[in-house]
Design a protein around this nucleic acid. Structure first.
Lengths: 195, 195
DNA sequence: ACCTGAACACCGTTCAAGT
DNA sequence: ACCTGAACACCGTTCAAGT
């Protein structure tokens, strides 16, 4: 599986073919199919393998729940951005053990923090949605400089049609990390209000 | 383009090949390439073509900004779910005119509602992230009943490892629409707090 | 200006056959 | 139990050639 991740890192999602993976593995032609059902399974395994989370060591001091949530979610996003193919793999993938582990942890933190049981699932899915959307978006904007230039050019050409987003420089603002954590703060404010 | 959307609706993302599309179009073999650069462009066009938004007719009464935002975003999500392939197409796609139009509208509503300029882009991207994450997730869980059964089975088998999400039935809760709008409310609460 | 078909360089997957 | 290579049924894209 490590080899599949290497290949995806190096060549992107289109670069992984069963034939090339077999090659890279040194093993001859099609022996892969003895170990794995099909290409989908390879993607499932690669995705989950990249999402392992190790909680930071507990110091004696009481941790605050917001900090814990933020830490885990920022790590989640960072893990996926380290392997940009993982974002485009996300749709239609199974939930592997590492993903389930993160959801479990998130549940525990939030319910310990006093989020009502009735709101818990909504809160978790909201955070999930936020992280997944942010990651998918971020990865898809991380294109070549050429592409960025083209997008910028097109937008200024169309500035009469989209005056507001042109003025606020919505598409040019490149502080992705800052936007991510500030938006997360907004969301957590929303949860905290219902506690 | 309508034909491409039909084909995607009928057969999913894997069902669209340049050859089959040409066939369906009645046109012979490879004449597509005179009209379009490559397959990527076909996907770009298909995605945007499905995201047109018509604002609801303005009654004389003053509309509330939360209602407008919720309406547009729920329509956005619904449009994508009507064409499930659009969710998996989202990563790495260009922003077409319909998408830009929605972002422009959102900007206008929020800034009219009094969201500070400094918070505007963060708010918009947060909502974007939320909608995209929710849609991608929803579409990917809408698998065959077989798949759902397998997932459920696996989770109960692993209930010792994931007690909290097992207890809250996180993965079985099927009120997606309700979760979407309740989570959206949380977010808007967060924005309103900063006004 | 628009369409065509053959051709090239790939794919995923199966399967009989090997050790 | 594990690997192999040939074979099948596809792909996206190019390009010389047609109207």
């Amino acid at each position: 599986m490590a080899t599949a991740v290497e290949l995806l890192d190096a060549e992107g999602i289109g670069g992984l073919s069963m034939r090339r993976l077999a090659d890279r593995l040194g093993s001859g032609a099609m022996s892969l199919y003895w170990h794995v059902d099909n290409k989908e399974k390879v993607f499932d395994l690669a995705l989950d393998s990249v999402l392992e989370y190790r909680e930071p060591p507990q110091t004696g001091e009481p941790r605050n729940w917001r900090g814990e949530v933020v830490h885990m979610l920022e790590d989640w996003r960072a893990s996926m951005l380290r392997h940009p193919w993982s974002a485009s793999l996300l749709p239609r993938r199974a939930l592997g053990p590492n993903i389930l582990g993160r959801l479990e942890l998130l549940s525990k933190i939030l319910s310990r923090a006093g989020v009502a049981d009735a709101d818990l699932n909504v809160a978790i899915w909201s955070l999930w949605n936020y992280v997944m959307g942010a990651t998918v978006t971020r990865a898809s904007f991380e294109l070549s400089d050429d592409d960025r230039a083209v997008a910028q050019q097109r937008l200024t050409r169309l500035s009469e049609s989209y005056p507001t987003i042109e003025r606020s420089r919505l598409l040019l603002d490149s502080d992705w990390d800052g936007a991510f954590s500030r938006g997360l703060d907004f969301m957590l404010d929303g949860f905290a209000a219902r506690q």
